[in-house]
Computed example of a mutant assay.
Amino acid sequence: MSRIGVITFPGTLDDVDAARAVRYAGAEAVSLWHDDADLRGVDAVVVPGGFSYGDYLRAGAIAARSPVMGPVVEAGRAGMPVLGICNGFQILCEAGLLPGALVRNHGLRFVCREVGLRVEADTAWTSAFTVGQQITVPLKSGEGRYVADDATLDALEAEGRVVFRYTEPAPNGALRDIAGISSADGRVVGLMPHPEHAIDALTGPGTDGLGLFTSVLSRITAPPPPMAARA
C-alpha cells in the first residue's frame, strides 16, 4: 500500500482531514511531525492547512524553516509528489518549492465559502480530472491572494503550470484568478482551496476533492513527465 505523509506543525488544524482524505483514496496516512528529521519512507507528502506557528512573521514563513521541510524540499526537487493546501501552499512558496507568494486577501477580509475551480493542467495531483473540468471545493483563508511579478506569471502560463483557476473572479483578489500552481515537473502542487473538505457528500459540498488524492496514487511510481507531454 502506498504511504502518504501528512505533516503537523504547531497550529495546523486540517491534518486530520487530510489524513482522512488519504485513507479515502486508498493509501496509508503517515503522520509526520514538524521536528521529524526524515520522511519515514513515504511515497508522497501533504502539507495541510491551518495556522502554523500562529502565522507570525508571514503565513508559512516559520513552518518553511522547520526541520521536516528540509527533506520535503529535497524530495520534492527530486520528484516526490508534494501537495500544499492553503497554509501548506503558503509554506511551499516560503520554502522555495513554488514561486510567488500568498498575501492578505483583497479587502482584508477572511473568505469562507465554496468556490468553483477549473482544472487547467495535468499533474501528479490532477490526473483523475480532465483539463477544463470544473470542480467545487471550500475556500477558507485570510491570506490567500496569490501574487507574483509579471514575468513569473507569464512563465507559469506559458509552461502550463497554472493548475487551478477560480471559475469566477477570485474572491481573494488572486492575480489572474490563480487558485493553484505546480512545479516544472508537475509533481509539486499548491492550491489555496481545500480539497480534503470535499471528499464525502455528507461532510462537504461533494466528492470533487477526492480526485487529487486518488490522482497521486497512479503517479507515485511513475517518472516525472517531460513538459512537452504536459502541454
Rank of each mutant, 00 (worst) to 15 (best):
A229R: 13
D150T: 11
R118H: 00
I181R: 10
A231L: 14
G186Y: 04
V162T: 11
L13C: 11
V216I: 05
V131Q: 11
M80R: 06
F129G: 15
A44V: 00
A229S: 14
R109P: 00
G100S: 15
G5P: 08
G5A: 09
F89P: 05
P223S: 08
G132P: 10
R161Q: 10
D36C: 03
I181N: 08
T136A: 14
G173N: 11
G79R: 08
T136F: 05
C86K: 14
I4C: 10
A124Q: 02
P195I: 02
P171Y: 11
R58T: 00
A158Y: 10
A21P: 07
A37M: 12
V188L: 01
G142I: 02
P195Q: 01
A231G: 06
G26T: 05
A201R: 15
E94T: 13
D36L: 08
G209V: 02
V72K: 03
P67K: 13
A64R: 05
V119W: 10
S183E: 01
G132Q: 08
I178H: 00
D177S: 14
D38M: 07
F110G: 03
A95Q: 05
W33V: 02
E159S: 09
T8N: 09
R230H: 06
P226K: 00
T207Q: 12
F89V: 12
A124V: 04
R187G: 00
G142A: 04
P171S: 02
N87S: 15
G204A: 07
I7T: 00
P224D: 14
I4R: 10
P81N: 04
G100K: 12
H194F: 13
V147F: 03
R161A: 08
I135W: 13
T152C: 00
S218G: 10
T123L: 00
V46K: 00
Q133P: 14
A222M: 08
G26D: 11
S52E: 12
A64Q: 12
Q134L: 05
D15G: 04
T130S: 13
V147A: 05
V22W: 11
G41C: 03
A63S: 10
G26E: 06
P10I: 14
P99I: 08
A59V: 11
S127H: 10
A170F: 06
L39I: 03
C112A: 14
A27R: 12
M227G: 09
F129V: 12
P10G: 10
A155R: 07
I85Q: 06
Q90L: 11
D208V: 07
T203Y: 15
F110Y: 07
L153S: 04
R109F: 06
A198W: 13
Q133A: 15
R65F: 11
G142P: 03
Y24V: 13
A128P: 09
P10S: 14
E114R: 08
A37K: 15
T130N: 14
G49E: 04
A158P: 09
P205N: 08
V163E: 04
M227F: 01
R58P: 11
E120W: 02
V22C: 09
